[in-house]
């Protein structure tokens, strides 16, 4: 296997940070978040699942799409896409899988989303395998694994004295050119960690979560389970904003400056959430999803019925963030088990 030490890794990252926007897990006031870093000294190498996914670096929470300026009779349009390359270091395999889910909509449909594609193309993903699964994690039920290299460019796995380096793509190989690697005796770390190492805070392997095929969901649309789970929903947006695959956005034009002879406007898009009260409200004020159970049902149908039917992949990677951050314990695993039970899976 290819091997490198932490010191070599730090030197390489410091070098990378000069020519790239380097994004890595960082301690932000006690919260582990993927954030821009100036050097390897700011990076956490031993961390759990960061509290927010990496989608902010591909579908930013707020993104300026274009700027216009009118001076007298002249109108100019300005492109806003950044040109620096981006490296996401320390991305967890579930977050990389989440990007593959987003690709199905933003890249593989015609026309592709030029902004998303731009961010995706200029980014290299250097993953760090999870040493274990944490509370809420169920990636192994969603086709992933704590050390799944599939959706990454490079996968690092902590081993005795340093890191095993697995080159997954050519893009990854190109990025690694500056990193001192040595060949070591021994097998690369296992593709799938043995169950006994999956212990969360309470120990033991997580129970598998059943996924009911999309066509079986239709019959459950009016089932009482949505009322039961939806009643305690607060209609906040936590679950959708922490989710690596929720991707709804809203678009608006905002006035940046107005004075005689000059108007500057920028068009932005910003995250939106189907769980929020007014998300589905239409012209005239009608809201086809006026209640919490209806909105919650939509979120789950989107992930496990509509999205796979329309675009291919499931809209969930089992990262478990929505489970641990929901203030009223709406638990996607519990919903999936209920759906499986009701549909006789």
């Amino acid at each position: 296997m290819k091997f490198t030490t932490l010191d070599e890794l730090r030197a390489w990252l410091n070098h990378l940070a000069q020519e790239h926007d380097l994004i890595a897990p960082r301690d932000v006031d006690g919260h582990v978040l993927y954030r821009p870093v100036a050097s390897s000294g700011e990076i956490l190498f031993d961390y759990e699942r960061p509290e927010l996914s990496t989608k902010d670096y591909f579908l930013p929470a707020t993104e300026v799409l274009l700027r216009t300026e009118r001076r007298g009779g002249d109108v100019t349009l300005e492109e806003v896409l950044p040109d620096r390359k981006q490296v996401l270091f320390g991305i967890r395999p579930c977050d990389a899988q989440g990007l593959t889910v987003l690709d199905a909509l933003f890249l593989q449909q015609e026309p592709p989303d030029v902004y998303y594609r731009h961010h995706r193309e200029r980014t290299t993903l250097v993953g760090l395998a999870c040493p274990q699964m944490w509370e809420g994690c169920f990636c192994t039920s969603m086709g992933g694994a704590p050390d799944d290299p599939t959706h990454l460019d490079v996968l690092l796995t902590a081993v005795d004295g340093g890191y095993a380096v697995q080159v997954v793509t050519e893009k990854g190989a190109a990025l690694l050119e500056g990193l001192a690697l040595e060949e070591r005796e021994g097998e690369p770390p296992p593709q799938s960690l043995p169950p006994q190492s999956w212990g969360g805070p309470r120990g033991g392997a997580p129970k598998p979560v059943p996924v009911t095929p999309p066509e079986k969901w239709r019959a459950l649309f009016e089932d009482g389970l949505w009322q039961r789970h939806g009643e305690r929903c607060l209609s906040c947006r936590i679950c959708t904003y922490v989710c690596p695959t929720c991707r709804c956005f809203d678009v608006t034009d905002r006035v940046v400056e107005v004075r005689p002879g000059l108007t500057r406007i920028e068009r932005i898009r910003a995250w939106d959430a189907c769980t929020s009260t007014n998300y589905r409200r239409i012209a005239g004020g009608h809201n086809p999803r006026p209640t919490k159970p209806e909105r919650l049902r939509n979120r789950f149908y989107c992930k496990f019925c509509y999205y796979p039917e329309d675009f291919g992949p499931l809209g969930c990677v089992g990262c478990g963030r929505c489970i641990v951050s929901c203030p009223v314990n709406i638990d996607i695993r519990e919903v999936l088990r209920d759906v499986a039970e009701r549909s006789g899976e």
């Binding site: 006031d29 978040l33 929470a61 906040c236 947006r237 936590i238 929020s276 007014n278």
Partner: peptide
């Protein structure tokens, strides 16, 4: 400003608040 920088505008603070019950919040 440092604190608000972390906020993700999820509105959980508003939604959980018994006193925040406007049909349409002025910030939305």
């Amino acid at each position: 400003l440092h604190q608000f920088d972390r906020c993700i505008r999820c509105y959980a603070c508003r939604q959980v608040c018994p006193g925040c019950y406007c049909t349409t919040c002025m910030f939305e």
